[in-house]
Nucleic acid binder design. Structure first.
Lengths: 202, 202
DNA sequence: AAGCCTATCTAACGAACGTTAGGTAGGCAA
DNA sequence: TTGCCTACCTAACGTTCGTTAGATAGGCTT
């Protein structure tokens, strides 16, 4: 058990995390000042430091939480599609990753957009958990490869990077208010598996 | 007069742009201070302001240049593949965009990574040129669609977003020092056209 | 030789930054 | 009722930020 039910104690802390993650997502880590985060929460900048040791600490917690949201989504998709056909399993995991990006708070999207330029010590702390998440995808794609769902000459490493990169890149253009997440998931799944080429014309 | 041949005059200015773009790429726009940029160039911070009006101005010039590099690469690919088969034309333009990202200075990569969180007035200034570049891709994909190279039910808008997003996302993991750009271009072209699915197993 | 222009410098400005010290008010426990 | 603990506050710290003013040194023009 990692996530407690929201109590009065954690409410203030979680409010700070929510607003900080949203601001980091919109403006970037450096541009979002502690004072602006505090203002969004409705408190003074100094009060942030009752809950977190530093601004870097705040970012670290947010990046970890974003990764946790992804990982939980992935695991849920795995158990939900145990024994299902390969393409269905892939579709479910793609949909799960996109749901983590757009339907479970700003944490995953913030992770995706701010990790690359995060302070080095923060990045270093996050890397193991990040590797673990990527390993989940490697295992999934390897399963699909050995079961014959993917072309035998598929390079799993690059395929994983392109798939995750493609999904994450959607934060640049996909607006969950305007588009359906199911449509997006279907689009990416279809394009990943079958591509754009017209099979009738070669 | 907009672009002069490189003289001793513009050399200092271009040095500043190079170092600034590299730092913006590595650390982000806000984290890279004018003093650090000046230090990388080998001058004092105040000297930057002999060449640029403000830090925002510096970013704006860099973003524009990144877009110009992309556009020139696209146009070169277009003229180089006039009358060529559709898939070859697509491959050439993918390769051109990736070359702009990795082989023509840090400008295009910096554009891709910093545009989303750039100050709003800077973003506003850039948008028209950005729309023009995306329109080039829309035209190309529409050509491929009407000539039957792409599946008739291809949605060109999302396809363009996914293709550009996928290529741009490679800046997160592709290292031009370690990997071949031709390999990357081939990988993305192949995956875009044909996907990962094993055609022998449905 | 005189004057100007370009490119840089030193020095400093006010503002904003992350952060700390110390205080206060309210709830819970003894 | 007293005392403590949590969650905030006000005030301020030293640092760094983007930026400006003004000086200087070297080269080109006349």
């Amino acid at each position: 058990m990692t996530i407690a039910e929201p109590t009065v104690e954690t409410a203030g802390r979680d409010r700070i995390l929510d607003e900080a993650a949203s601001l980091f997502l919109k403006q970037g880590y450096e541009a979002a000042s502690v004072r602006r985060i505090a203002e969004a929460v409705g408190m003074q900048a100094a009060s942030i430091y009752h809950h977190f040791n530093s601004k870097e600490d705040l970012l670290e917690v947010i990046l970890h939480r974003g990764l946790e949201v992804m990982t939980v989504a992935f695991d849920d998709a795995s158990t939900a599609t145990l024994g299902a056909p390969g393409r269905e399993r892939l579709a479910a995991h793609i949909r799960a990753h996109l749901a983590a990006l757009y339907e479970n708070g700003p944490y995953t999207a913030t992770h995706v957009t701010t990790f690359r330029t995060a302070p080095e010590n923060v990045r270093t702390t996050i890397v193991p958990q990040r590797d673990a998440y990527e390993a989940l995808w490697t295992t999934l794609l390897n399963d699909l490869l050995t079961s014959g769902v993917l072309t035998p000459d598929t390079a799993v490493g690059p395929a994983r990077l392109m798939l995750l990169g493609g999904m994450n890149a959607s934060v640049e253009w996909f607006d969950p208010q305007r588009g359906s997440l199911d449509d997006l998931a279907h689009l990416i799944t279809r394009q990943t598996l079958y591509g754009l080429s017209n099979p009738l014309k070669n």
